[in-house]
Amino acid sequence: MIKISLSYIQPKFLIRILVCLLFSMQLTLSAVGQTPEETGLEIATEAREKERGFGDSTAKLKMILRQKSGQESERELRMKTLEVEGNGNRSIVVFDRPRDVRGTALLTHVNLNDSDEQWLYLPALKRVKRISSSNIAGSFMGSEFSFEDMKSAEVNKYDYQYLRDEGCGELQCTVVERYPTEKGSGYTRQVVWRDKDELRIWKIHYFDRKESHLKTLTFSDYKLHEDKYWYADFMSMVNHQSGKSTDLVWSEYEFGTGLDEKDFTSTGLKRVR
């Protein structure tokens, strides 16, 4: 009997028990010691960290704008993005369609602790115009996406609250509410569904200033790029109040294209094609 019981206190077994104990303790501690605000922030921070390190990228985007009647119109544009260490991304959007705005380009410097800077290039006049970046709630090219919806979500531009875990399709998702802190935002809050495996967003509910459910954005066709970054090739924004919707179809992602800071200046903007 003693011999047998002694086998329980073999070092290997002890360590296993200890690890189990510690692990469950840590889990209980984090569940008890972390507020829903902290959990929400942690998820957002971790998700943003996972997006970092790509350097620069280019992609093509087709927008399909659908009226309530079902009538469709299309926009085609190209995106160039540069990651900036310690600050928000820099991006250039070049419009290809409709043809009357062909060659028009929008340069944005996202600032983490300040308002963003934007310059618009008008090819007919060859004029670069510094424009106000404060109309973030305004429609992007007449679509159901506003300027703030098109930007990468910087962690410090929201407050967070973790709501619950729930199944989303075959995956388990965290549901986190976020409250925009940026001046001029069109929303009081957004509810974000992220899967627990890769922290990919599957759905966002947008609530307007009157606290009513304005829009729903769904993500699909996730693809893995550079063995590291998950990007959805298809996004669909439905406006529940107007009955209109906009689909985004992303394609031709490229990384390490040789873009640098000098391409994201007003001189570089005048060269853009």
């Binding site: 308002s115 800077e117 510094r130 424009i131 106000s132 970046s133 404060s134 109309n135 001046k183």
Partner: peptide, 9 residues
């Protein structure tokens, strides 16, 4: 010169 402050330029 141009000063761009919020909606005011």
């Amino acid at each position: 010169g141009q000063v761009t402050t919020g909606p005011f330029l």
